[in-house]
Write a protein that binds this DNA or RNA. Structure first.
Lengths: 266, 266
DNA sequence: CGCGTTCTTGACTCCTATCAAGGAACGTGG
DNA sequence: CCACGTTCCTTGATAGGAGTCAAGAACGCG
């Protein structure tokens, strides 16, 4: 059951998976400028892997051996603290990368679990450390290594920026604002992944949302109800429609009028 | 007043600053294996700069042009949010690096301010992007670039790990535990910087501590008093002596007995 | 010494967690 | 198709932790 790797497009000998990948524009390996080296990469290394709901891409403590890209489906990262409690550290949408943490320690710090059926690509660590094996020419190797390293720095930089936002949210925002910020983040990233921004199906349950935002599940539920009563959104189980994005953004920005309205509605 | 750059050791023509730097073992530029290339670096680029209390190393929004190492003194990072409120994002001790954030956006996201008089080294961004200018040989250039990139990845990785800890602290710890974790972190890093671990002089005021931990200043003050009444520490203004490190660690770990004692003492 | 800054302490309020119960959706098996 | 159990979600009542407001104390500096 653990070995469910499927190499798409191999049986019928089509072009390598990378060429036809919907997410190639976001991929640090795929380079539009130099498509022939990519062919080689695509053929030799990048094989999508299908994952079913609840299955783990990797567990915390597993040896670090590359970063991953989401081709389809939704994933969550979490770790288990000393007390044995789960802490959700992020959600991953199609086109996004994960698994960069732990490059320093040599093992992943988080577990990553599929929220529904999806598929992912692994970019092996060897791509970053010894791209020489792909090309013996020093100059070309150098360029490629630099490009991949730059990609990695970009991923880490984004991770840092995202973490900083979360720190700010956890520390300085109250529950309402934090929740609003979460919704805006979700809609923006859904839109970036090619979905509708206003009408989305949340891929995670209330418990995961609450855990991620460091709130009680009941609080999250109440906030959905409150926002709905204010005409900001419509929620039915996991189906979400944002009806007043402007108001939502005003809450995120902490605009006094918006907060007043919120307090009155409570 | 802004141009207070001092190039140490230039007037009397001694060996380059890097060679005699107390913090060279922590420096990503200084490489024990290849000292001759370092000589070159030290002579051409790395010049310590003195900073007085309250002065800024850089401001948020300044163009990113390198990362910094603390040679002496203490610094704090902070940014100003949309509401105009300050958020302290970290403290920097001798031997530590800062300024890595914003490499992606091309400008620093945080301002960094000296908490007392100190000195810093800037490692110019060009070191990371074009080390060719240091050596024309492709192979050597490649090796050097890889080393520096690896160093940068290491710094970013550490920043991510530190941020994750803070996220966990903000989200899942109550004020007492968070405060205890802060004290442990401070003592550990002071020890790493070569100071005593038990007896330290806090380089920042209550307001900065409170802001960093996302607590009210009054709460921080009360916690000092509480911990002192329990015999865990002695505090007099900014002079701190940890008298029971074991108990402090027990609070950080959230051990039930320790928390019980805390609640009773409140 | 007087003044401003920094820190401490007290009283009170409010936000959010917790505890508890009920309701709605979903899968499964009869 | 319905009964059933399970999971997920909602809603209400209560309590506690940390923030806020306010006043006073200690320290440093001119």
């Amino acid at each position: 059951m653990t070995n469910n790797i499927v190499i798409l497009g191999r049986d019928n000998n089509r072009q390598p998976a990378c060429q036809s990948c919907m997410r190639r524009t976001h991929c640090p390996v795929y380079d539009q400028q130099a498509s022939n080296s990519i062919d080689q990469l695509g053929k030799t290394h990048i094989a999508p892997r299908n994952i079913r709901q609840g299955q783990h891409v990797f567990n915390a403590g597993d040896e670090f051996d590359g970063i991953y890209m989401v081709r389809s489906g939704f994933f969550k990262s979490y770790f288990v603290d000393a007390d044995g409690e789960i802490q959700v550290t992020g959600f991953h949408f199609p086109g996004e990368l994960f698994g960069i943490d732990g490059i320093e320690t040599g093992q992943y710090n988080n577990a990553v679990e599929a929220l529904d059926t999806g598929s992912i690509c692994k970019i092996p660590f060897s791509f970053f450390t010894d791209p020489q094996q792909e090309s013996q020419d020093c100059r070309q190797s150098n360029a490629q290594k630099t490009r991949l390293m730059a990609a990695m720095v970009r991923v880490m930089s984004k991770a840092i920026a995202r973490d900083r936002n979360l720190i700010f949210a956890l520390g300085k925002m109250n529950a309402k604002r934090r929740f609003a910020a979460f919704l805006v983040d979700m809609t923006e990233r859904m839109a970036q992944s090619g979905y509708s921004a206003n009408e989305i199906r949340l891929c995670m349950g209330r418990i995961d949302i609450a855990n991620y935002l460091c709130l009680a599940m009941e609080t999250v539920s109440r906030l959905f109800t409150l926002f709905q009563s204010m005409g900001i959104l419509e929620i039915k189980r996991r189906d979400l429609v944002i009806t007043d994005m402007k108001a939502l953004q005003a809450i995120v920005d902490g605009e006094p009028e918006a907060m007043m309205l919120l307090d009155k509605a409570s």
